[in-house]
Nucleic acid binder design. Structure first.
Length: 737
DNA sequence: ATTAGGCGATTTTTT
DNA sequence: ATCGCCTAAT
């Protein structure tokens, strides 16, 4: 293998230092992926069997791309490499070893929505009001308790307030249910293997022995549980190589612990530390800007990034009137740049802090007919029809999965309402049997209406029939026949609306995915498919073969690069994000790292943009430009105000805003983006009876009456097309005429 | 007594 | 767009 002339000396060292602990501190664009790829290829080349190598990556997509490259370098024997995300590798281990913990290998994996459903049910049953205690908050409290290895009893003992006491009660029941359902949540996938290794030393030894060489990418984003796992696994051979960049740690909110990377040398005093500081990705301008920004973080290892690339163009700040203007401006810039730089649409990415921002951008792309793809947002596997079909399939492989059963018990409609469902559940609880079994014995539930009994009977028969067929047919064949017989495809066809046809296609797409999975891995089970799907990330599903502009959150952008990058919504409160006024130093630093990740995705040209006025939570909000803009030297920046004037004349805007800010907009940029947002408050004095407004859907209308205040501000509007409507202004997106 | 359908509330980032 | 709550329909 001849990689010698393709890598610099630090990279070379990182590739060849294969024994003992190694930490590679890799700045953005420093060829980290290339180092990991070559390092693994090198290991295989010097005779290490591929199955003795464990490589943990941040996305499955990264894993499969890397695997293919390695196969290209050293051949098919490298296929046996263990490579994937923490979660998918551990799911694989649990499929084999779960028995020792009392889990069947067909376990279901519950995503955040599934777990929230379980929590809501428990709350409902134990009479804890969802109004009083936010189920989301409880869910995340339970999750963090689990990640600290706190069992329900211990957590209950430590509860300091009523909220924690309630959480503890729910937590305890939650654990029972998941176990009863033969289901694991995302946290369990990390925690259960730790339990397993603690209680079964022989199993631990088996895996320690198998994984003689361990590599971990994006180490700065590992959490405590992942840290413990790695320590356990690497304990025997200590051939551990971690690659990361503390400046790119952006998952503290989910428990990622930056100390894992900062303390690596403490854990492994003999660790060799290799720094990759030459950047091959970005222009000098972009790199300098990123460096200036990250220097504002106190709690940061300092690095000396440099590049031989050219200076490149200045960073352009797009000053926009509102969120629609921002979208329109970005799209027209993309159009211009693609001609000037002879770039394809796929060379552009627009990044933002929150998924909600994608909507205004999307509108602009549609209006100007520029192809785009959104990463994340409303994900494929979060669509109702997909979740329904997945629930059916999960139930087929794991009949204990009550959560999935409840999802589909009345899909398609079987004339079962809430009351009927409750009866089935109490019957099941009384007999301590899974809901599927209760369903099979529907005749015994005397209080059920004949219609309900019949529906349940049919459902039970259907499930029985296909679970028998599972034994003889391939996963793909069974799924197709099963989904067909469920009848939802037929329903979509009958409805015939564009929406239901889209749903029909989505289900077909899912079936195709199953078929492909079966072709690729003939040995694989339906359970494995379902488990894999549950662990797919947004970027895993991103298809970069389309020639289209990519829209994504800054979080999803991690690890990617694009010739031209736009970072939208650089406003205080949005980036850096804060939902209240306080933003503590730690949070601010994480926001800054997120911004840094965004900046360093750009190769040739970087755009920043902000809007003076934006619909946030579907409410007008006026925020000042982000402090992050000021953290870049003026010399590296150029700013445009013209774009905004051109765009704002074409559309309705807010009279009050225009009169107040038109002048400032033409002022010098320096003054402009450092000034403070006006304490202007949109409300009654703007919107009063008689005002003419425009609604996105209903069109033109006249305000008849205004009531309420704050979030509850409402208006009665008479539309010429739709008549009188009572609108909650928080959501109505009214524009003044 | 039950169910189905209308209407209002809901959006930080994610494996 | 989807979920939960309320009310009208059966």
């Amino acid at each position: 293998m001849t990689f010698h002339h393709e890598v610099n000396s630090q990279q070379q060292e990182a590739i060849r230092t294969v024994e003992g602990p190694v930490m590679v501190v890799a700045g953005p664009g420093s060829g980290k992926t290339r180092v990991l790829t070559f390092r693994i290829a090198y290991l295989i080349q010097i005779g290490v069997p591929a199955y003795q190598i464990l490589a943990l990556t941040f996305t499955n997509k990264a894993a499969s791309e890397m695997r293919n490259r390695i196969v290209g370098l050293v051949g098919e024997k490298s296929r046996q490499l263990w490579m994937g995300t923490f979660h998918s590798i551990l799911a694989r281990i649990l499929r084999v070893e779960g028995k020792s913990l009392g889990y069947d290998s067909n376990f279901s994996i519950y995503d955040t929505a599934d777990t929230l459903g379980v929590i809501k049910q428990i709350m409902h049953e134990s009479g804890i009001s969802a109004q009083q205690y936010n189920p989301q908050a409880i869910r995340s409290r339970i999750s963090s308790a689990k990640n600290q290895f706190l069992l329900p009893e211990e957590f209950a003992r430590r509860a300091v307030d009523l909220f924690e006491e309630k959480s503890a009660r729910i937590y305890s029941e939650y654990e029972k249910r998941l176990r009863g359902n033969n289901a694991l949540d995302f946290d369990d996938l990390l925690i259960k293997p730790i339990d397993l290794f603690h209680h079964h030393k022989s199993i631990l030894q088996k895996y320690q022995d198998r994984f003689r060489f361990i590599l971990i990418d994006e180490y700065q984003d590992t959490n405590h549980a992942q840290y413990v796992l790695i320590k356990l696994l690497a304990d025997r051979y200590r051939n551990i190589c971690v690659v990361g960049d503390d400046a790119q740690s952006i998952y503290a909110f989910r428990g990622a612990d930056i100390r894992n990377i900062l303390d690596f040398q403490h854990d492994y005093p003999d660790a060799k530390v290799i720094r990759l500081e030459q950047n091959y990705r970005s222009t000098k301008t972009i790199l300098a800007a990123a460096d200036q920004v990250i220097k504002h973080n106190v709690d940061q290892l300092s690095k000396n990034l440099w590049t031989e690339n050219s200076d490149g163009d200045k960073i352009t700040l797009l000053v926009c009137q509102d969120d629609r203007d921002e979208g329109a401006t970005i799209v027209s810039r993309i159009y211009r740049e693609s001609l000037n730089r002879k770039l394809d649409l796929k060379d552009f990415a627009v990044m933002y802090r929150t998924n909600a921002q994608s909507r205004a951008l999307e509108d602009a792309f549609m209006q100007q007919s520029v192809r785009y793809v959104i990463v994340g947002g409303v994900r494929f596997y979060e669509r109702k029809e997909i979740k329904d079909v997945m629930a059916y399939l999960r139930l087929l492989v794991n009949p204990h999965d009550d959560e999935s059963f409840l999802r589909i018990i009345n899909v398609p409609g079987r004339g079962l309402g809430n009351v009927a469902v409750q009866r089935v559940r109490s019957f099941a609880a009384h007999h301590s049997i899974p809901l599927v079994q209760a369903c099979r014995r529907a005749e015994e539930i005397t209080t059920l209406l004949p219609k309900a009994k019949k529906g349940l009977r049919l459902l039970a028969d259907l499930l029985d029939k296909y679970s028998h067929m599972m034994k003889e047919m391939s996963a793909s064949e069974v799924s197709r026949a099963f989904v067909d017989e469920i009848g939802i495809l037929r329903l979509f066809k009958e409805e015939g609306t564009p929406e239901s046809m889209a749903r029909w296609e989505n289900v077909q797409e899912l079936l195709t995915a199953i078929t492909e999975f079966c072709i690729q891995q003939p040995e694989a089970t339906l359970a494995a498919f379902l488990q894999d799907q549950a662990l797919l990330s947004d970027t895993d599903q991103w298809d970069d073969k389309h020639n289209a502009v990519t829209l994504m959150t800054l979080h999803s952008a991690k690890g990617l690069e694009f010739p031209v990058v736009f970072i939208a919504g650089l406003e205080e409160g949005l980036l850096p994000f804060s939902n209240s006024s306080q933003l503590d130093a730690k949070q601010l630093e994480e926001e800054r790292r997120l911004y840094y990740v965004g900046l360093t995705r750009a190769m040739q040209k970087l755009y920043l943009s902000y809007a003076r006025v934006r619909f946030r939570f579907s409410e007008l909000s006026y925020q000042s430009p982000s402090r992050f803009i000021d953290e870049i030297d003026q010399e590296l920046l150029e700013s445009t105000g013209q774009a905004l004037q051109a765009a704002s004349t074409e559309r309705w805007s807010f009279p009050a805003v225009q009169s107040r800010h038109r002048k400032k907009i033409t002022d010098s940029d320096a003054q402009y983006h450092t000034d403070v947002a006006p304490d202007y408050d949109h409300d009654q004095d703007e919107l009063k009876p008689g005002t003419m407004v425009v609604h996105e859907i209903f069109g033109r209308g006249k305000v008849l009456q205004v009531t309420g205040s704050g979030d509850a501000l409402k208006a009665v509007v008479e539309f010429s097309s739709a008549g009188k409507k009572n609108l909650l202004l928080k959501y109505a997106r009214l524009r003044l005429l």
